[in-house]
C-alpha cells in the first residue's frame, strides 16, 4: 500500500538504513523520477546520519504533500541535540566538525528545491527540505 507519510525514529545505524529505503520507496510511489528519488533518499541519509552523529537521537519524516496546488516530497529532520551555533559556517562547503568531506548540509541544500534550517545552541536542529514533482 502506498503511504503518504512515514516517520522514523533515528537511534541506531539500522534506522538510517530503514529511513533511506522507506524514503526512496515513498518518493517513487509519489511519482518522483529515479534520479530525484535517489536525491531524496540521499538527503535523508545525510540528515539521519547527522542526527546520529551530533544529537544521537531524533526523527526523520518523509511525506508526499500538496502545497500551492502542486505535489512535492518533503523531508523533515528534527532532533533535540546540541544544535548549531553558527548556521552560516555549518552550511559552508568543506566545513566539517566531524572529520568528513564537509559537504553534507550544503550538498543537501544543492540537491533540494527547497531547504530550510533552524537551529540554536541547546535547542536542537530542524531541517526541512523538499523536491517538487
Amino acid at each position: 500500500m502506498a503511504r503518504d507519510e512515514v516517520r522514523i525514529q533515528i537511534l541506531v545505524d539500522a534506522d538510517v538504513a530503514r529511513a533511506i529505503v522507506v524514503a526512496r520507496q515513498l518518493s517513487r510511489e509519489a511519482g518522483l523520477s529515479t534520479p530525484r528519488s535517489t536525491m531524496i533518499a540521499t538527503a535523508v541519509s545525510e540528515l539521519a546520519r547527522n542526527i546520529l552523529k551530533y544529537a544521537r537521537r531524533g526523527s526523520v519524516t518523509v511525506r508526499a504533500i500538496d502545497r500551492d496546488g502542486r505535489r512535492r516530497v518533503e523531508i523533515l529532520a528534527t532532533d533535540r541535540g546540541p544544535g548549531i551555533a553558527d548556521i552560516e559556517t555549518a552550511m559552508k562547503e568543506h566545513f566539517s566538525s566531524g572529520g568528513t568531506l564537509g559537504l553534507g548540509l550544503s550538498g543537501v541544500e544543492r540537491m533540494m528545491d527547497e531547504f530550510d534550517i533552524e537551529s540554536a545552541p541547546g535547542e536542537g536542529t530542524r531541517v526541512c527540505a523538499a523536491l517538487w514533482l
Binding site: 534520479p35 535517489t38 550538498g107 540537491m111
Partner: peptide, 13 residues
C-alpha cells in the same frame, strides 16, 4: 547508475 551519478554531482562530491 545515472541516478547515483547525478546525485553525486549535486552533492558536490
Amino acid at each position: 547508475s545515472p541516478a547515483i551519478a547525478q546525485t553525486m554531482v549535486e552533492l558536490g562530491i
